[in-house]
């Protein structure tokens, strides 16, 4: 057992946290450029180079593997699987499949129409729509690398709970009348999609790596840049006063700031990492990450085309309320994450 633990520690340190990269960049910054990383300038440069390289490396490898897996769960198949479940199990399956079905906000309209037309309860569709941007296999592994197992695991569990709970509540509220009429009138034939060859799956995975890295690289660099500034220049006392554990408004503030921001989860992680290191509560950090990823303006604008403002409002309220609740819960349980 002790040996296994050591092997895990080594794998975690070298592969996920990339200590070798940390040391390599340290060597570059300290020995080549002569800037000690314990000081502001050297520390910022080190954080920026190490963190962006680490996230890009992890992202490339992870998206390749995960996209291959995702090619087995196109939304057309997910729709069929979800039709077999009733009640809360349906919400749970919706939330779980939301994590493995490839999805971008640009396909949320056909997806919403397809699910609704297939007779899936509104709440199941919302469980899917909440978990899909929020809980992501790649995000889980990056969190694992940056924050360690406990927080990564906690993030996934609360993300799923939020998706299941939110969907369940939307079901109970009987909001079907707030879906645009034309959605109900659509008639969609059963899809008969060809099975993919292994080669097509690998090509798909590679295409996803190029597309996702192409889409998020700027968010990552901006996120790491902000993280580097927080990490080395903003005094700990200031951050603690504004969103520290002793400010009872911290979680609400983090959520409200996060919602209008449109960034990818990967751009949010370095900011969260730097805030966490400066003593911000784990619940506050999770609330910020969830608010940035779960609700974004472009996705809401697209959703408005299939649902009426009342339902859109309920959706936003449920998600924001859930995030705030989770934030306070985790801050209260913070001892577990020390």
């Amino acid at each position: 057992m002790a040996l296994l633990w050591e092997v895990w520690q080594w794998l975690n340190g070298e592969l996920l946290q990339m200590k070798w990269l940390f040391n390599l960049v340290k060597l570059l910054v300290e020995s080549v450029w002569g800037l000690p990383i314990s000081e502001g300038v050297g520390g910022s440069i080190h954080f920026f180079i190490y963190d962006s390289l680490k996230i890009f490396l992890l992202l490339g490898v992870l998206i390749y593997g995960i996209s291959y897996l995702q090619s087995y769960f196109p939304p057309e198949r997910t729709k069929k699987i979800l039709g077999k479940f009733q009640g809360v199990t349906g919400n749970l399956m919706g939330a779980l499949l939301g994590t493995v079905t490839p999805f971008c906000s640009c396909s949320s309209i056909p997806l919403f129409i397809g699910f609704t037309e297939a007779g899936l309860p509104l709440g199941v569709t919302f469980s899917f729509l909440i978990s899909s941007p929020l809980v992501d296999l790649a995000a889980f592994l990056v969190l694992l690398s940056v924050f360690g197992f406990k927080i990564a695991f906690a993030y996934v569990v609360v993300g799923i709970i939020l998706a299941v709970g939110g969907g369940w509540l939307i079901n109970r509220l009987r909001l079907e009348k707030y879906v645009e009429e034309y959605v109900w009138q659509m008639k969609i034939p059963a899809s008969n999609l060809p099975e993919l060859s292994r080669r097509a799956r690998l090509a798909y995975a590679w295409g996803q790596v190029r597309e996702i890295v192409g889409r998020v690289w700027l968010y990552i660099l901006v996120g790491v840049g902000i993280g580097a500034v927080i990490h080395n220049w903003i005094p700990r006392e200031l951050i603690e006063r504004v969103i520290g554990v002793n400010n009872p408004w911290a979680v609400i503030l983090a959520t409200l700031v996060g919602i209008p921001m449109y960034a990818d989860i990967f751009g949010t992680i370095p900011v969260a990492e730097a805030l966490f290191a400066k003593g911000v509560g784990v619940g506050t950090v999770l609330a910020l990450m969830m608010a940035v990823t779960a609700l974004s303006l472009p996705a809401l604008i697209l959703l408005r085309k299939v649902i009426k403002p009342q339902l859109l409002g309920v959706f936003m309220g449920v998600v924001a309320g859930g995030i705030i609740f989770i934030g306070y819960l985790f801050n209260a349980l913070a001892v577990v994450f020390k």
């Binding site: 090619s71 196109p74 939304p75 057309e76 729709k79 490839p102 640009c106 396909s107 056909p110 997806l111 129409i113 397809g114 037309e117 659509m186 969609i188 034939p189 059963a190 899809s191 008969n192 999609l193 060809p194 097509a200 090509a203 798909y204 295409g207």
Partner: peptide, 24 residues
């Protein structure tokens, strides 16, 4: 959606869906 497709882009040849949700 008349083709039962929920993820784009999709390629349809002679009314048969050949690929969808990816770029062949």
């Amino acid at each position: 959606m008349a083709y039962g497709v929920m993820s784009t882009p999709a390629l349809v040849i002679n009314e048969k869906v050949k690929a969808c949700g990816r770029l062949p």
